[in-house]
């Protein structure tokens, strides 16, 4: 394995403590869609956008996937390269990744398969006026 193998950030590991915008603490595996929406409503800088998965290109040999999203009402095209086990939060569904078996194995985070058409929670900056 390469010595510079990338790893996921620690907050996706099951049991990690997450602070919502109102100060409430929850475990990462207990987060609900409403927690993100309500936190964004409180935030002065961030807003929730809907990002629809349009395409997933991945391979187990590289451990990476390129996920193409259509973001927000203007349907801007954004592509991100992530580890296969990187979890995204799908509206009304919860954590999902390109390879949920790896996510469950590495993070113990309950996870479903990310699919084309899924609508993920993402963030953008609020318009500052």
């Amino acid at each position: 394995a390469p010595s510079s193998a990338p790893s996921l950030p620690p907050y996706f590991i099951k049991g990690s403590i997450i602070q919502l915008a109102d100060g409430e603490l929850k475990r990462v595996e207990d987060l609900k869609t409403e927690d993100f929406i309500q936190s964004a409503e409180i935030s002065s800088e961030l807003k929730i956008d809907s990002s629809t998965v349009e395409r997933i290109d991945g391979s187990h040999t590289s451990n990476f996937a390129i996920v193409q999203f259509s973001v927000g009402e203007h349907r801007a095209q954004v592509s991100v390269e992530v580890l296969l086990e990187y979890p995204f939060f799908v509206f009304g569904q919860g954590w999902s990744s390109c390879c949920p078996d790896r996510t469950t194995q590495l993070l113990e985070l309950p996870c479903t398969k990310l699919s084309v058409g899924d609508v993920c929670i993402s963030l953008t900056l609020k318009n500052l006026r």
Partner: peptide, 19 residues
């Protein structure tokens, strides 16, 4: 025990400003 802010869990996808 570390406490992480909620927004660190969400990818920041900034659409390009086209209009």
């Amino acid at each position: 025990v570390p406490v992480f802010p909620w927004h660190s869990l969400v990818p920041f996808l900034a659409p390009t400003q086209s209009d």
